[in-house]
C-alpha cells in the first residue's frame, strides 16, 4: 500500500511530512541511541519479510506487516516504518519520494494502534488469545491504513471519491490475509520467544517504554 509521487497536491505532501516529523520525533527522542541499531536490525528483518510473495487468488501480493511491526517494536514501530519506506522508495521505487511523509502516517499510525490493540486483547484470559489478538491487530492495522489512504486521496480533490472508495474496498481481502499471517506470527512468537513482544519486556530496551 503506497501513494506514488504525482498524485497528492503539495499541501497534502507538506502536511504528511509535518505529521511524520512530529510523531517520529516524539517516538525517537525517548529512545537511547543504543536502542537504534537494535531497532534497525529488526526493521531490516521486517523489511525483508514484507518482500515475500503471498498468493491471493489469481495474483500475489507483498505483505505490509505494519500490525506485526507495531506488536514487536511498540512506539519505535513508527520510525521503523519511516526507515522502511525511505528504503523502499530509494531502493525499489515503491511509493514516491515526496510522499514518504504521507505514506509513513498512513502505515505508521495504524502500527501504533495495533500495538495498543494487541496489548489490550492479549492481556485477557481466554484460549488462543495471542492468535486472536494478533489477528485483530494485523487486520485492523490494514483497515486503518485503508481509511487513511482514502483520506489522503480525498485531499487531492472531490473527483477522487470513487477511487478512494475502491481503495478502501480492496483492503477487505488484505485484512483477512494480513490478519491470518499476523495471528500465526504472534502465536509463534508468544510460544517461541515471548520476550520479543513489546508488552512483556521488549525487543529493544527497558528504558524506551513510554
Amino acid at each position: 500500500m503506497h501513494i506514488a509521487d504525482g498524485v497528492l497536491p503539495l499541501a497534502s505532501i507538506a502536511a504528511g511530512w509535518v505529521g511524520t516529523g512530529v510523531v517520529a520525533g516524539l517516538t525517537l527522542r525517548k529512545a537511547p541511541f543504543e536502542a537504534l541499531p537494535k531497532a534497525a536490525v529488526m526493521t531490516s528483518g521486517f523489511f525483508v519479510a514484507s518482500l515475500v510473495h503471498v498468493p491471493l487468488g489469481p495474483t500475489s501480493i507483498h505483505l505490509t506487516l505494519n500490525g506485526l511491526v507495531g506488536i514487536v517494536l511498540g512506539p519505535l514501530a513508527f520510525p521503523a516504518i519511516l526507515v522502511g519506506l525511505i528504503l523502499q522508495s530509494l531502493l525499489f521505487q515503491h511509493g514516491g519520494l515526496l510522499t514518504i511523509g504521507a505514506n509513513t502516517l498512513m502505515l505508521g499510525l495504524p502500527a501504533l494502534a495495533a500495538y495498543k490493540i494487541y496489548a489490550l486483547v492479549s492481556r485477557r484470559n481466554f484460549s488462543h488469545r495471542e492468535a486472536v489478538a494478533g489477528f485483530l491487530a494485523g487486520s485492523l492495522a490494514i483497515f486503518f491504513s485503508g481509511l487513511l489512504l482514502a483520506l489522503w486521496l480525498m485531499t487531492a480533490g472531490r473527483e477522487f471519491l470513487t477511487i478512494a472508495r475502491l481503495a478502501l474496498a480492496s483492503c477487505l481481502p488484505l485484512m483477512v490475509v494480513e490478519g491470518l499471517v499476523c495471528a500465526a506470527a504472534a502465536a509463534f512468537l508468544a510460544k517461541v520467544k515471548p520476550e520479543i513482544l513489546w508488552r512483556k519486556t521488549h525487543a529493544v530496551d527497558e528504558s524506551v517504554l513510554p
Binding site: 536490525v41 529488526m42 505483505l63 506485526l68 500465526a184 506470527a185 509463534f188 512468537l189 525487543a203
Partner: peptide, 21 residues
C-alpha cells in the same frame, strides 16, 4: 499457507532479534 507464512515471518523476526545484541 498463510499460517505457514506467519510462522516463517515469526522465525525471521526471532533470528533478527537474536542477532541484535
Amino acid at each position: 499457507t498463510l499460517g505457514t507464512f506467519g510462522n516463517l515471518i515469526g522465525l525471521m523476526v526471532v533470528r533478527a532479534y537474536e542477532r541484535t545484541e
